[in-house]
Design a protein around this nucleic acid. Structure first.
Lengths: 243, 243
DNA sequence: CCAAAAGTGTTAGGAGTACACCCATGA
DNA sequence: TCATGGGTGTACTCCTAACACTTTTGG
């Protein structure tokens, strides 16, 4: 194994993406060959960390290598260190041999990140074996990655209610219906349009701009932006983004 | 170094205690001798983890060795892995040499735990160099432990608003004034007694019992208990303990 | 009888909720 | 002209916040 890596500590990243329909997770295909049979499942993007590398930098490196994206919103939400987390499924053991993994216990520090799939589309290229997968049809996952994703989603939801992270999943300019949609998808609820808008109109950091949608087959919607500036200036300790 | 330890991964524990007055943190005294001068500061209880030990078990072991206490509420709230986190202060370097620490990078997984100092008093004995210190006069701390405590407190506060963890800091039977006090201390706010009680009376899992305080020089207060049972049965996904 | 904390109700204002119709655009 | 989502107001209920006096005990 590369001696600049720490053998016991890795980073895994749960990348959430939103395409105005669904919450998606970025997963990497894994092919496991055993006795001539090919088995197929998916894993989270992740890697061991380097001896001279900050944790956040390692997460950035993994995400950049995977997608070319930089400056993503990163949230470290937990560590997973079960003694047998790499060894509880047969296909995991075979795969570890295949990639020459040292027989060491690995404790992983997990991050989630949020990206929006509509405006980012042109800015990045996914490594060929990485795919967006809908959060509610993840299929078979490697190691304890199902558990990690479940925790990531639950922590993200909590954070969603209390911090303005919805805007990471939306393009810079968005409509109120898009904002409502993402709250509904992430929090698995439904909101009344008028009440939602009444609430939003009280939040000073969500500002209307003088632009409208174009090329839509209906009345074009007004566009809004999130002002980080106003947010920083007006935030109270208890600020609440629940709607 | 003991070969059953993982050299790169440790656990640190932020133990919060409440004595009906103040939030306290449990810290371990550290004496550093350098050129005949004795320097004194404090560190969080912590240790490297063992190769065959679950993360939570390691935290339990550390707390048990320190205090004799078991079955504490444990919350893993973050990992701290700065490349130079052990090496940025001179006294830390001296101390590491003193205890024969291997020259390895250590990533620490941090837990906080809550205990109540009034009823626990008789059940445990602190290791002699461990002391309760008020959260707002911590003094000089080792390594990045000030940062860890700040994060612990902030995560604990967030959790406090949304989960019934206040009761970990109170004796089994408590008065409403004690409950109010702990909300005020932890969240650094003040509440109106009547409004607080009105809100509490709507929470079904905080149940009055047929007992009163004794030996107090004023009208004795009714005692209450937290019913985990009722809580589990009636909790909604969105339950909210803000008062 | 004094000190100390317990216990208790009302009101006014603000927030949340439920609900239905017309509008602007592209096809 | 039709289909599609955009945009808007009102009434009712519930929660929040402000506020002061009597009660029970130990000393």
């Amino acid at each position: 194994m590369d001696p600049i890596l720490i053998p016991n500590v890795s980073i895994d990243c749960v990348v959430f993406g939103f395409d105005m329909q669904d919450l998606k997770v970025l997963l990497v295909d894994r092919d496991i060959e055993h006795n001539g049979v090919l088995h197929h499942d998916r894993k989270l993007p992740g890697d061991l960390i380097r001896k001279d590398e900050e944790l956040d930098s390692a997460a950035c490196r993994i995400l950049h290598d995977l997608s070319g994206l930089q400056n993503l919103y990163l949230n470290q939400f937990g560590s997973f260190g079960g003694v047998n987390r790499l060894k509880s499924k047969e296909r995991d053991l075979i795969w570890l041999k295949q990639i020459d993994h040292p027989e060491e216990r690995v404790i992983t520090i997990a991050y989630y990140t949020l990206i929006n799939l509509t405006s980012a589309k042109e800015e990045y290229i996914l490594r060929s074996n990485a795919k967006w997968t809908s959060l509610d049809s993840l299929g078979e996952l490697a190691f304890d990655h199902a558990e990690i994703i479940t925790k990531a989603y639950s922590m993200m939801k909590q954070n969603f209610k209390v911090n303005p992270i919805a805007f990471e999943l939306l393009p810079d300019k968005f409509t109120l219906s898009q904002l409502q949609k993402i709250y509904e998808v992430v929090l698995k609820t439904q909101y009344d349009k008028r009440n939602f808008r009444k609430k939003i109109s009280q939040i000073s950091c969500i500002v209307p701009i003088n632009e409208k949608q174009t090329n839509v087959a209906h009345k074009p919607a007004r566009l809004y932006m999130f002002s980080k500036d106003i947010y920083e200036k007006t935030r109270k300790d208890n600020f609440d983004f629940t709607v």
